[in-house]
Design a binder for these strands. Structure first.
Length: 943
DNA sequence: TTTATCGAAG
DNA sequence: AATCATTCGATAAA
């Protein structure tokens, strides 16, 4: 009963509101959910957290606040058992997804660091490259993009596209509507080769592609990487992973130093790629669930009664309908559970390897799911056997066949994008940890716990099976259930139960309760629960199953991220494991932020027009997020979207003066209790210079909210090491190298101010046609609002020239700095001129441009003429020579006629070709031809 | 009581 | 500044 996770009860998520002491789990030492006590001061508190209670309402300040926003408040379901594993507190936040993907980190990395244009160029090249090699990979036929046509992806389209299933087409590329960042240009996205490849989506009847897709996924399902490579994408994965074992090099400091940054990026890249693979996988399975053959096979399983329950008459009351559906589902899942045999291993969590050896010796379990193609799936429907994943999919098909709106839900199990997670199990318990041999055994024991008895030859596949790996035999191969040499295991291969699978599902189903317009989870095979979203999240210690991304696919192919419905601590725990939750370092220019990436990835699956139901669900999920209880340990407060601790404030962050405490938390049991604040009361403070660069100016008389101590210069010469990268946008950039205040601030530290203490910067106005300038003769124009009164920004490269021509006063606009190395270089963009001159300047610019064009035309014309004359000259020479040599017929005549021209030709002939022989002429001409610019096609003007 | 897990430390 | 490895202590489970 005492769950490792935060326990929640209905309604209010605050301990303070719990009407009475929580039930105990039966252990005398258990105080209820994680030590729940009532103190003398009149507030409830847990061992580490308590809440301020308002006397008048008896509620904590947190809740009072929340009640002011009724839309976020969800009425508790009546009669819910508090400790019921299935539900409870929720909370969740609205993150959405996005995605692109990647693979060649080469390209991605390069793209990241490059300036925009270059970046785009490279992107284009990368795409071209993909196109070139893409099709050759796993399939001979042209790759298909999974989602056809995003409108914004013209370039990406380089890859051959094919029509995809109609439903996909319908929703492709349409903006979500409620999504705020819908306008991101596609060009901003890193869309490396892998994307194209990964996103290959087989059409329904295309077996080949199905296979390819499956294989892709297969790689990841096991443990990333170690699959003998057949396709390029596999190879890629293998290389990336094995090349530097990402988790491993913790030992030596130097290795860490060199690898950490790169390894981090790589981890993220792989994570993304893996996610896309998994999404494709689920999407495909979801399509299979729609298959008529499958549904026809399954439909007979439902009794009439069940079908009736599943389709309640609309004449029933809301409640009646809901209950009917519920019992129908119940019956159906019981039935299904008894009829379906789990004979294979389903998806499981992918883990990083710690070193290459593990990869070399890794092999997939023997009993891995065998449904590679739809035909297999149909077969599984006939025999009602397969992995639990296939089971859930068939169950989904079953319900759909009965007319129930059903979603296929999958908890994606990608490789972690953050360090620190579990790694591949050491394979040889005895050997693995020399220092503590016991550990291996412990591990084995732990694994054994999961294993449901039984001979499982599958779990311990023979190492030798791995084709031709030279080391396979030599290396100790391991099985998770170490002690048993699997192959020799005499035990009866009886009921093949899947050993070692997590007691929580990877795949399950959601059904729509039409009456209440609500989706409810149903897991028939693994936990056998329904209507209990909270029952499906595995504990954090589960190595086989980690709930990080839960994606629900509807029959029409659209999908939605419903993680918040299932994760008990989305904000404080789950989010940290997600691509959209990790601090992808504010490092500017590092491509898409995780959040945008994921949003983008999921948008591909979004419905073009959100329905009312979508809206309702969105609200519901947001409400769940809002209801998430406070973390009870200090670590979870770090970077928490709602709460903040003083101890975690960054050096430039500061609490707003009136910040309210919403509770306290103590580290451990004995604690100086620390106050908990709301994140929204945290402000970022900046130095004067920094504000200035944002177009703001500290008001006169404001006291700095804090003075940043001077940076302790690292001894040992030029430290750098971590200096160059980490300065993300906010803050640090400024105190460091800048033209301003270096000297002033140096002495006592940098005073910093909050935004409230600043006003919009008013640049000195333009007077009498004079534009104010700084000491470098420029004008600072970091943001548009910094344009001085009476001035106008003419953002054109020739503006300066134009202004000069006009004779008006102007100042080049300093719009920012480009930091490469540690030196900032000023970026000038256009000029500022007196407003009244703006039009004139633009006009002149237009004129200059025209002039340029004209001059260019002339130049080309001149060159062309010159070339022609040279050519003619050559012809004449040639003619003359031939005239002399052949001495004949018509030649003579012609020569006579051309006498004048001949002379001219000779005179021109100072260009340098003295050779007057045939060959000389010829070569001369051709040389000229080639040397000419492309534009002059051998003397012809190309307009 | 012992053991495994998790959080805090710094 | 932040991550990482390690230790220690509290707690939950056996």
């Amino acid at each position: 009963m005492c769950k490792p996770y935060i326990q929640a009860w209905d309604g209010c998520n605050h301990y303070a509101h719990k009407p009475k002491a929580p039930e105990k789990c039966g252990k005398e030492t258990c105080l209820g959910p994680k030590g729940f006590v009532h103190d003398d001061a009149g507030s409830w508190k847990t061992n580490s957290t308590d809440y301020n209670i308002e006397k008048s309402s008896g509620k904590c300040s947190d809740c009072v606040e929340r009640e002011k926003k009724p839309d976020l408040y969800v009425t508790p379901k009546p009669g819910r058992k508090r400790n019921a594993p299935g539900d409870g507190n929720p909370f969740a936040r609205t993150t959405r997804a996005t995605a692109a993907s990647q693979r060649s980190q080469r390209n991605a990395a390069a793209a990241r660091s490059a300036v925009p244009d270059v970046y785009r160029e490279m992107l284009r090249e990368a795409r071209a490259e993909v196109v070139a090699q893409g099709p050759s990979s796993s399939s001979d036929r042209p790759l298909k993009r999974k989602r056809p046509g995003e409108k914004k992806i013209p370039n990406a389209a380089a890859a051959p596209k094919e029509e995809e299933p109609p439903m996909s087409a319908a929703r492709s590329g349409v903006d979500d509507g409620n999504d705020d960042d819908g306008d991101i240009g596609f060009e901003d996205v890193v869309l490396p080769p892998a994307t194209v490849q990964t996103m290959v989506m087989p059409s329904d009847d295309d077996d080949d592609d199905d296979e390819a897709l499956f294989e892709d996924v297969e790689i990841h399902r096991g443990v990333t990487s170690a699959v003998p490579a057949a396709s390029e994408s596999r190879e890629l994965t293998l290389n990336l992973t094995a090349q530097e074992a990402l988790m491993a090099p913790r030992r030596s400091a130097d290795r860490r130093k060199n690898l950490s940054k790169e390894a981090k990026e790589r981890r993220v890249e792989i994570h993304k790629m893996h996610l896309l693979c998994l999404l494709s996988h689920v999407e495909l399975r979801n399509q299979w669930c729609n298959d008529q053959k499958v549904q026809d096979l399954l439909r007979p399983l439902l009794s009439e009664k069940m079908t009736k329950f599943l389709n309640p008459r609309a004449s029933l009351t809301q409640y009646g309908q809901a209950e009917s559906l519920k019992s129908g589902i119940h019956e159906a899942s019981i039935m299904f559970k008894t009829k379906f045999k789990i004979t294979e291993r389903g998806l499981r969590r992918a883990l990083w390897a710690e070193d290459e050896e593990q990869l070399k010796n890794y092999q997939l379990p023997d009993d891995i799911e065998s449904a590679h193609e739809k035909q297999d799936f149909i077969e599984a429907a006939k025999t009602l056997s397969g992995s639990r994943d296939v089971g859930a999919q068939l169950f989904c098909a079953l319900l759909r066949s009965a007319g129930v709106e059903t979603r296929l839900v999958c908890s994606l199990q990608p490789l972690a994008c953050v360090p620190g997670g579990p790694t591949l199990p050491k394979q040889q318990p005895k050997i693995d940890t020399p220092s503590k041999p016991s550990k291996g055994e412990i591990y084995a024991a732990a694994m054994a716990k999961y294993e449901t008895k039984g001979p499982d030859p599958g779990a311990t596949p023979s190492p030798r099976r791995r084709l031709g790996h030279p080391l396979a035999a030599a290396y100790h191969v391991p099985s998770m259930t170490a002690p048993v040499p699997s192959p020799s295991r005499p035990e009866t291969p009886q009921v093949k139960r899947i050993r070692g699978e997590s007691p929580y599902p990877i795949y399950w189903v959601e059904v729509l309760d039409r009456a209440y317009q609500k989706w409810h989870p149903v897991d028939a095979l693994v936990t056998g629960t329904q209507w209990k979203p909270r029952a499906l999240e595995p504990p954090a210690s589960d190595r086989e199953n980690c709930m990080t991304y839960v994606v629900a696919f509807e029959a029409d192919g659209s999908a939605r991220d419903v993680t918040r419905r299932y994760a008990k601590a989305y904000n404080s725990k789950t989010k940290r494991l997600r691509i959209d939750g990790i601090r992808t370092g504010g490092t500017a220019g590092s491509g898409l932020s995780g959040e945008r990436w994921w949003r983008r990835a999921m948008r591909k699956y979004a419905r073009p027009w959100p329905t009312d139901l979508d809206q309702i669900e969105k609200t519901e999920l947001a409400a769940e997020e809002a209801k998430e209880p406070m973390p009870r340990n200090v670590a979870d407060f770090k970077d928490h979207p709602v709460y903040a601790l003083e101890r975690h404030l960054r050096r430039n962050e500061v609490l707003v003066p009136g910040a309210q405490t919403t509770g306290t938390v103590g580290a451990g049991s004995k604690a100086p209790l620390e106050r908990i604040y709301r994140r929204r009361d945290v402000r970022i403070a900046r130095s004067r210079e920094k504000w200035y660069r944002m177009g703001r100016e500290v008001k006169p008389g404001e006291e700095p909210v804090v003075i940043l101590p001077k940076r302790t210069p690292k001894r040992g010469g030029f430290n750098d090491y971590n200096d160059d990268n980490e300065d993300n946008d906010d803050d640090e950039l400024l105190d460091k190298g800048d033209l301003f205040g270096d000297s002033a601030a140096a002495a006592a530290g940098t005073p910093i101010y909050t935004e409230d203490q600043t006003d919009l910067y008013q640049a000195p106005p333009v007077r009498n046609g004079r534009v104010p300038k700084n000491k470098f003769g420029n004008i600072d124009l970091y943001v548009p609002s910094m344009v001085p009164a009476g001035g106008a920004h003419v953002a054109h490269e020739r503006a300066a020239q134009a202004a000069y021509v006009l004779g008006v006063d102007y100042a080049p606009a300093l719009t920012g700095f480009q930091f490469k190395g540690r030196q900032g270089t000023a970026v000038l963009h256009g000029v500022v001129v007196p407003a009244e001159c703006e039009e004139g300047v633009w006009a002149v610019i237009g004129g200059l441009t025209d002039l340029d064009a004209e001059m260019e035309r002339e130049r080309r014309a001149r060159r062309a003429v010159r070339m022609w004359s040279r050519f003619l000259k050559g012809l004449r020479i040639r003619e003359r020579i031939w005239a002399g040599a052949v001495e004949g017929e018509e030649e003579g005549k012609r020569e006579g006629e051309d006498g004048e021209g001949k002379g001219k030709g000779n005179m021109i002939d100072d260009g340098g070709d003295e050779d007057v022989d045939m060959a000389g002429v010829a070569s001369d001409v051709s040389e000229e031809y080639f040397m000419g610019e492309d534009e002059e096609g051998g003397g012809f003007l190309i307009e």
